[in-house]
Amino acid sequence: MANTRCPGCPSGVKGPGKYLCLTCWHALTPASRHALRRRGPGAMARLQDLYRQVANGVPLADIEVTP
């Protein structure tokens, strides 16, 4: 798998299997990062919630991903 552009910033590159580049990942709140690391039912919905908020221009520090 190849690296792809980070949806959270114009110049970032995220690695395979990552949601965001490291800079953007660490800009999220600890609660959001914890929710996104959870596996199982609801994982895809949490990821879609993250990407929807990013696309809507919500600052990374203000993104809330519900567990």
Rank of each mutant, 00 (worst) to 15 (best):
L22Q: 12
G12I: 04
S32I: 08
P41C: 11
R39P: 01
R33V: 07
M1G: 13
W25N: 01
V65S: 02
T23R: 09
P67H: 11
C6V: 12
L36M: 07
Y19F: 13
L28E: 01
M1W: 12
S32L: 02
A2C: 02
L20T: 03
R33A: 09
V54Y: 00
W25M: 06
Y19G: 04
G17K: 14
Q48C: 04
V13I: 14
V54R: 02
R5N: 14
Y19N: 08
L47W: 13
A45W: 13
P30D: 04
A61Q: 15
A2I: 09
R39C: 10
C6F: 06
P7K: 03
V54K: 05
G17Q: 10
L36C: 11
S11K: 11
E64S: 09
R39N: 14
H26Y: 15
L36Q: 08
A31Q: 07
A35M: 07
R52Q: 15
A45N: 06
P10Y: 14
K14C: 09
R38P: 06
D62C: 00
K18V: 10
P16L: 14
P10M: 11
G8L: 07
C9K: 12
Y19M: 13
A27L: 04
T29Q: 14
Q48S: 05
P30G: 02
L47F: 05
C21D: 01
E64C: 11
S11N: 11
Y51S: 00
C6T: 07
R39E: 15
L22A: 14
T66P: 01
G8W: 04
I63L: 01
P10K: 15
G42E: 13
W25G: 00
Q48N: 15
A43E: 14
L50Y: 03
L28Q: 07
G15I: 13
P16I: 02
R46W: 10
C21P: 01
W25P: 04
G8Y: 01
V58D: 08
H26A: 00
